[in-house]
């Protein structure tokens, strides 16, 4: 006799023991519960997320200076201004550059940690995961402050560099692109590590054994097996770190200041200090659009590239 499948069992129970209410009425009542439970959340998200986002999209197409302008007209002039003004274009380029450096630093520092997490015992793995992940739950200003102390002209890092004879006079690490990249990579490195580690955990260990039996050196088996199979984790980590770096405000403001005017700093200035809301809205959507475009193109390229099989 075939074992009773889960669905059949449920069917039997419902046949025998459900109260005699017609199916239609029961469904209606179910929907009522669902709607009642869901409605507050749905209204909240629509009211305080969807509508505000659409509202600033609408504002970004309005041509007026300052809030409450009376003779508002629809145009794409805000976007036109952005893409013709060298200051904003430079800021966009700076944002992309800083984000790319952050991605590269995070990848180089993150991969060995992820690999170690994949190879060690479950106990050590748990400890490493805790150490890597918990800084994400501590305020970014606190982590920035720690680096600020280290990167001061007479701070620990500069004293170390001078002591090792790498530089003679203190390097300008604060209020520079280097400071921003250090701050950002410090903040987002855990995302890179966790993302790569997840894909490394999924690799079948027998593949590496097979490679070793066939005579491959550990290096060869890493290059031909582990690295390609971890590509999905690498790509999603890079995408995560890149998009977060593109839109980071606090770290560039504290570690770069006026010397590193990345797009989020410029947008904040437009909205808070200059009260140019329509233009600030447009800058926000440019930031969103450019980030999405770069991330999409990069992901597509990787998924259609040499190792397209591993993304399926």
């Amino acid at each position: 006799m075939e074992p009773v499948r889960y669905d059949d069992r449920q069917e039997i129970v419902s046949l025998r023991l459900q109260p005699a209410v017609s199916g239609k009425r029961r469904n209606l009542k179910k929907y009522l519960y669902a709607v009642l439970l869901l409605l507050p959340l749905l209204l909240f998200i629509i009211g305080f997320f969807v509508i505000p986002m659409l509202y600033i999209l609408y504002l970004s197409f309005i041509d007026t200076e300052g809030p409450g302008g009376t003779n508002a007209t629809y145009s794409i002039s805000n976007y036109g201004r952005f893409f013709t003004d060298p200051y904003y274009l430079h800021s966009l380029w700076l944002t992309i550059k800083v984000s790319l450096y952050t991605v590269i630093v995070s990848l180089l520092l993150g991969y060995p940690v992820a690999l170690t997490m994949a190879k060690c015992s479950p106990r050590v793995r748990g400890l490493l995961t805790l150490l890597v992940a918990s800084p994400l739950l501590i305020s970014i200003v606190v982590r920035n402050f720690g680096w600020y102390l280290l990167l001061l002209p007479n701070g620990t890092v500069n004293q170390l560099l001078i002591g090792l004879g790498i530089t003679e006079s203190p390097l300008k690490l604060l209020f520079s692109e280097a400071g921003v990249v250090i701050g950002l990579s410090n903040a987002y490195l855990p995302f890179m590590i966790l993302s790569i580690a997840t894909s490394l955990y999924n690799i079948d260990p027998s593949l590496e054994k097979a490679a070793a039996i066939l005579g491959a050196s550990p290096f060869r088996s890493f290059i031909s097996i582990t690295l390609p199979l971890s590509l999905p984790g690498i790509v999603s980590g890079m995408v995560l770190v890149f998009s977060m770096s593109m839109s980071a405000y606090v770290t560039p403001a504290l570690m770069g200041g006026a010397n590193v005017p990345v797009l989020p700093v410029v947008a904040y200035d437009q909205i808070i200090n200059l009260l140019r809301w329509t233009y600030g809205s447009a800058v926000s959507y440019v930031l969103l659009g450019i980030t999405l475009a770069i991330v999409t193109i990069f992901t597509r390229m990787m998924e259609k590239g040499r190792y397209r099989e591993v993304f399926r």
């Binding site: 890597v132 280290l150 490195l189």
Partner: peptide, 30 residues
């Protein structure tokens, strides 16, 4: 442990310090 493994663990240790150091210096500095 092979040399490649030692390098990996060394870099991993540096990364961990890199992640945690801003928290580790702030408390003594206070």
């Amino acid at each position: 442990m092979k040399i490649s493994g030692k390098i990996r663990v060394a870099v991993a240790a540096i990364s961990l310090v890199y992640i945690l150091i801003p928290l580790l210096v702030t408390i003594p500095a206070s």
